[in-house]
Amino acid sequence: MYVAVKGGERAIENAHAWLAEERRGDPSVDALSIEQIREQLSLAVNRVMAEGSLYDADLAALAIKQARGDLIEAIFLIRAYRTTLPRFGGSAPVDTGRMTCARRVSATFKDVPGGQILGPTFDYTHRLLDFKLAADGDVPDADTRSAEPTHVPHVTAFLNREGLIEDAPADDTPPPDLTREPLELPASRALRLQALARADEGFTLGMAYSTQRGYARNHAFVGELRIGSVPVEMDIPELGFAVEIGEIEVTECETVNQFKGSKTEPPQFTRGYGLVFGQTERKAISMALVDRALRWEELGEDNQGAPAQDAEFVLYHGDNIQATGFLEHIKLPHYVDFQSELELVRKLRREAGAPPVQEAAE
């Protein structure tokens, strides 16, 4: 490490001081508050919470500020802090059927029971810079909400009435905790979903996009995409029943995928599933597409050799913290390693009869 280099410790201290100065920016500009980040950069906050596996908007906003907007660095900070927290118990599985939806759309049914709820979305905006936002007073009108959040049924339930879609797999076995135990293969679907939920959004998006371009032959429809609040309950042994301890905002996506059937199963649609903290639509859809691609074996399909069908490739390379650590460690001192490589190359050149050249200073 640089500490071992002459003057390294003092250089590191100066680098930290310089980092703090760069983080603050021009002192004549008002400092960005945690509240401002939480309320006005909420999508960035949601991503940090999701991939950091910790639902706390204030801490995620603090991490974003400390990381100067580098979301992967902020996720790293959140995961590191998460390891210091005591664990009092586990919550019961959330029931997304009880979700109070602020947004809910389906690409499979126009007149879906409960209605399409567009909610806050970029889907219908023009991708043009809005210079009004550069001015003060960009407070939205009071009547922007078309309707209050409401409870609505799941779309796939209507397909399930006719047996047109597979039943949701029922497995009450508690999945391993990926935040406490290393990933092991082969991984169950529950463990795969857990890994995908905290995987890097860009990586997951790339894998999902590959399935749409034909790598995995897996055409999907968004059966339903919903965003809203769900109650979180926890079993209290002294009481003998579960009590509600709060609410969290989540994004849920269920895809409807084609399936030709097999010797034991009739032709029907199959499912892909994604569930992520906060309003994280792109991630939830990507997660559902990759989830379906990884199910090829249990559905008796052929492996097309697509990257998104390779569980080891997807799950081991989707974690941005592990990827960042392995990638960025190469910029740290490797003086001894390089010198040994340098001497080896020089020796091989001499043995090969290469003309001598003036050697660079070591």
Score class of each variant (00 low, 15 high):
G8R: 05
N14M: 14
E21C: 06
R24Q: 11
P27Q: 11
S28Q: 12
E35T: 10
A57S: 13
K65S: 10
D70R: 02
A74W: 08
I75D: 03
I78C: 11
R82E: 03
T84K: 15
P86Q: 13
D95A: 09
T96S: 14
T100F: 14
C101M: 15
G115L: 13
G115F: 11
T121P: 15
K132Q: 13
G137Y: 00
P140Y: 13
P140D: 14
T144C: 13
A147V: 05
P149G: 09
P149L: 13
L164Y: 09
E166A: 12
T173D: 01
L183S: 02
P186I: 09
A190S: 11
R192I: 06
A195L: 02
G202F: 04
S210L: 04
R213E: 12
G214W: 03
F221H: 02
R226P: 03
S229L: 11
S229M: 07
E233Q: 09
G240A: 10
A242F: 11
I245H: 08
I248F: 10
C253T: 11
N257M: 06
K263C: 00
L275K: 07
E281H: 07
S286Y: 06
D302F: 01
Q304G: 05
Q309V: 05
A311W: 01
F313V: 08
D319M: 02
N320H: 00
P333W: 01
P333G: 01
S340V: 12
E359Q: 02
